[in-house]
Design a protein around this nucleic acid. Sequence first.
DNA 1: TTGGCAATTTGATCCGCGTCAAAGTAGCGT
DNA 2: ACGCTACTTTGACGCGGATCAAATTGCCAA
Lengths: 244, 244
Amino acid sequence: MERGPLIRNASPMEPEDWHLVRSTPLFGRIPKDVTARLVGSSGPRCYEKGALLFQQGDPADAFYVILEGWVKIARLTSEGGEAVVGMFRRGETFAEAAMFLGGRYPANAEVVAPSRLLKIDGENLRKSIRENPDLALCMLASASHHLKFLVEQIEQIKLLSAPQRIADFLIQQCRTRRGSCVVVLPYEKALIANRLGMKPESFSRAIGRLRNLGVSVDHEYVSIADVSTLVAFVEKSEESERAR
Amino acid sequence: MERGPLIRNASPMEPEDWHLVRSTPLFGRIPKDVTARLVGSSGPRCYEKGALLFQQGDPADAFYVILEGWVKIARLTSEGGEAVVGMFRRGETFAEAAMFLGGRYPANAEVVAPSRLLKIDGENLRKSIRENPDLALCMLASASHHLKFLVEQIEQIKLLSAPQRIADFLIQQCRTRRGSCVVVLPYEKALIANRLGMKPESFSRAIGRLRNLGVSVDHEYVSIADVSTLVAFVEKSEESERAR
DNA sequence: TTGGCAATTTGATCCGCGTCAAAGTAGCGT
DNA sequence: ACGCTACTTTGACGCGGATCAAATTGCCAA
């Protein structure tokens, strides 16, 4: 079913893999033996950058847990336009919602960094839910999480300027909400740009305009003089004048 | 808990109400007695336009079925900006996913037309899920449905122009995909505009530019000469020149 | 080191949409 | 019919981000 090149099959689950799986909202409160049954016989698989996990229109018969790497979810239009709908990383699950539609994936999934993924079979899962309904409650919580994320993303695109969206993104990357901080951009700038709903050129210019808010960029390292300045900048659109 | 003015409380469930409830994806495949238990003792309630069902940040302890009317889901920012995130109508359910966030609603819910709503208690629901796991599968499917919708909305805002978004909206309103058609705008134009991520002025101008694609507007009635023309217009952004 | 390639930056220009303002309209109660 | 109000439309104008193009940088392999 996989289309992309596959580096290695069926490596065994390491202890830290189990730990990671149990840290996801989906499996966090599920008994370990149930989780093990869901993962099933097929272990994690390795993929290299560029691998396509599924394409929009494919039957949605599984979802994934990322043990390592990055996966991009995007929709393609007939003219070749692409809209990145989500970026998922180590410790996150994706496509679990699509699976329950009983139908087809609404978007493409592409590996954008060397990754190790766990594939969870849908039929298997449905059977397990009938045996352990609490599993369903955890999964519902997970779906809600994504829903909230999407709602926030819509809000962002609709009412924040490009520099504000970048500032918001940076804030999310660093743990703290005040003081200085250096964040490492998690993936290519063009990808971040797309995810924030803008072109790479606009991203470059916009992050440049954050300089007088104490943001300086050196390749993938972004140092922030005071995170609270950025927070204030995102909150109040009037302050956007300061960035000019 | 309701903030808005309430016209009438606890009217009885009519037979057609039951039919409507059972037509929702959530309750469609659920045994009738389970549904009845969920609906519980509290019957439908009537609300008038402007009533607030809940606000973002409120504890999410219930979701709703719309028996009649329209409900707007929107996020507010600190400066008073508003982003409409969803519009729900007769026969639809909303906030069922948010309920599982383990806490709070991520957005506001406002009645925008005289409505009759069924409120489903969250605690009650969780209990029922444990008894009937198939209910969970239905809810997961339903949540997924909303997720897909939001994903599509993000795509729309990101890569469609204002006239294209309106065209897409009109296509969704009429059943057919080709031939002529007259659609009745379901609610105020300003609301549609917000839902499509634009200002009322832009909506007015943009729908005007669809005239040479065979779209004419008379108050809330929009007649479309050939729906397939609009479909083509949304598909190919190159054709946007034709609308100028 | 050199050449080539991909990612990023910078510059110039264009156009869509937002903003502000004003002029229609329809609906509605008096 | 009148005037009030809310909604919609139209106009003028400016800004933000897209687009096209070219320069720059970093990276890797020959």
